[in-house]
Amino acid sequence: MCSLFGLIDFKECLSTHTKNKILNTLARECQVRGTDATGIAYNFKDRLRIYKRPIPARKMKIHIPNGVNAVMGHTRMTTQGNAQFNQNNHPFLGHADGSSFALAHNGVLWNDKELRAEENLPLTSVETDSYVAVQLLEQQKTLDFDSLQSMAEAVEDSFVFTVLDKDNSIWFVVGDNPLCVMFYDGYLIYASTQQILCKAIKKLRLKAPTDILEPKEGEILKIDRTGRMTTSAFTPKTSYEHWWRRYSPYYRDYYEDTPENYDDLFSVAKAFGVSADEVQALLDYGCSADEIEEMLYDPALLNEMTGENFYMRTD
């Protein structure tokens, strides 16, 4: 489970300071879906820039330069490919039509190795399953609705892809994972879930959005730098794993409806003099159980995190 986030300032109505504030807030709220790595992509001075690090968003300060109006971001929970090797983190760099693009993925692909063999894709040191989507687009040597449809119909299982092109358009390729876009007068923000966006706009003290869009599975949506939307579609590839995960009541009951038990973590924290409320605040903030346990042995970091978190919760 990872999270996508970003913005398009299509009327260029936001200051750089405001855009950085929005992006940092979105990234931190996305930590609930992944803290192993954080990354963003944007175009600046006719060049695609990707900045990513194997750290949680709360430890990474996002700074985009003046004049950047479209930004694509990602927070990662590792499923394949060690996050400490930065090449395995999102967004990924690709090349098509003689120019660069950036791709980020939320989900898990089950047939990446098979596709690399079947399509005779180039050998790569990137270990992440998501990277096969970049290679499939590069193989077609173009970035458009047709190439995105072909890629989306080749990969199997769960996904939403976002792609930033050289013209500051962001393409959304929606499988069976969630995505939400909120529109304001002159700009939009997006994230993997509406809940993430609602928490972010509350902290940012933004007004209610003018419109909310949640694309459905099988949709390809392009939003260009002026805010204009165009759409296309693809037919999702069905596999047994996909079917069982989506439709089986056993999966939903066991994997989706069963909350994670943190009793052991609360007990350990209590031995260190840390209250259950403080631990729960860190969990709500996006910290993993392993990260919190490490903090218990580093009082300075723990005090810094709990102090910052409680301040933000009462803000």
Rank of each mutant, 00 (worst) to 15 (best):
H74S: 09
R76G: 03
N106T: 01
V71T: 10
G67Y: 06
H74C: 08
H105D: 11
K45E: 06
A41W: 00
G73D: 04
G34H: 03
D36P: 02
V134G: 10
R76T: 04
N88D: 01
N89S: 04
T78E: 07
Y131V: 11
E118F: 08
T38M: 01
K61W: 00
M72D: 09
Y51H: 09
F101R: 10
Q87H: 12
V132T: 08
Y42R: 14
E118I: 10
N66G: 04
N82C: 05
Q135V: 08
T78K: 05
H74L: 10
C30Q: 04
T25L: 12
L136W: 05
N120Q: 08
V32K: 10
E127P: 11
A83C: 13
E118N: 12
G73M: 06
G73H: 06
Q31E: 15
Q135S: 14
N82Q: 12
Q87M: 14
Y51K: 06
K59R: 15
L103F: 12
N88I: 03
H105K: 06
A41P: 08
S100P: 00
N88R: 01
L23Y: 05
L26I: 09
F85V: 03
F92K: 03
H105N: 10
E118W: 04
A27W: 06
R47A: 12
T75E: 05
H105P: 07
D112I: 02
E114H: 12
A133S: 15
S130Q: 07
F101K: 09
V32H: 04
D46M: 11
T38P: 05
S100E: 14
N120W: 00
A133L: 11
L137C: 11
S99M: 08
T35A: 14
S100D: 15
G107T: 04
A96Y: 12
A70G: 07
T128P: 02
L136K: 06
R116S: 12
Q31L: 09
Y131N: 14
S100A: 13
H95M: 11
S100K: 13
N88Q: 07
S130P: 09
T35G: 07
L137G: 05
A57V: 01
V108F: 12
K61T: 06
D46N: 15
K45G: 01
M77I: 04
N88T: 03
E114Y: 13
W110L: 15
I22C: 13
P91Q: 11
L48Y: 05
P91E: 10
S125H: 11
L109G: 04
S100N: 15
V126Y: 07
N111C: 11
L136T: 06
H63Q: 13
N89Q: 02
T128W: 01
A37W: 06
E29F: 05
N20T: 06
T75F: 01
A37P: 07
N86Q: 05
Y51C: 01
E119S: 10
V108L: 15
E29I: 04
T38L: 01
Q87L: 14
T78I: 00
H105L: 02
V68T: 11
Y42D: 14
F92S: 03
A70E: 02
A27P: 08
Y51T: 03
R33H: 05
